[in-house]
């Protein structure tokens, strides 16, 4: 598949843009954390599209963001358990 470009996204509706990016992001995240891939992808999709496109090109950026999402998720789950 050709890489997703800003111009390809520009012709799509906003929610379709997120789906297009998510379709590229999900397999990368699945390779890192299969059991949480859907959740982490959903969290990352709230980031600006320009930054998401950069993350698709940059494994280091993506890994850093995935780690950040995991920490947030774990903190959130810990919080729910103490309530």
């Amino acid at each position: 598949r050709e890489p997703l470009s800003a111009s390809m996204l520009a012709s799509a509706l906003p929610h379709v843009q997120k789906q297009m990016i998510g379709d590229r992001l999900y397999p990368l995240i699945y390779a890192l954390h299969s059991e949480l891939a859907g959740k982490i992808t959903g969290m990352l999709l709230e980031i600006d599209n320009s930054e998401l496109l950069h993350m698709l090109e940059s494994p280091e950026s993506l890994n850093a963001k995935v780690e950040e999402a995991l920490i947030m998720l774990q903190a959130h789950q810990a919080e729910e358990q103490t309530d």
């Binding site: 598949r1 789906q19 379709d23 999900y26 959740k39 959903g42 999709l45 947030m72 903190a75 959130h76």
Partner: peptide, 21 residues
């Protein structure tokens, strides 16, 4: 730059996994 991830974000449903183009 603020980058706040929302743990309550909706889970992504990967349609391309079941329906490849």
């Amino acid at each position: 730059r603020k980058s706040t991830l929302n743990p309550n974000a909706k889970e992504f449903n990967p349609r391309s996994f079941s329906q490849p183009k």
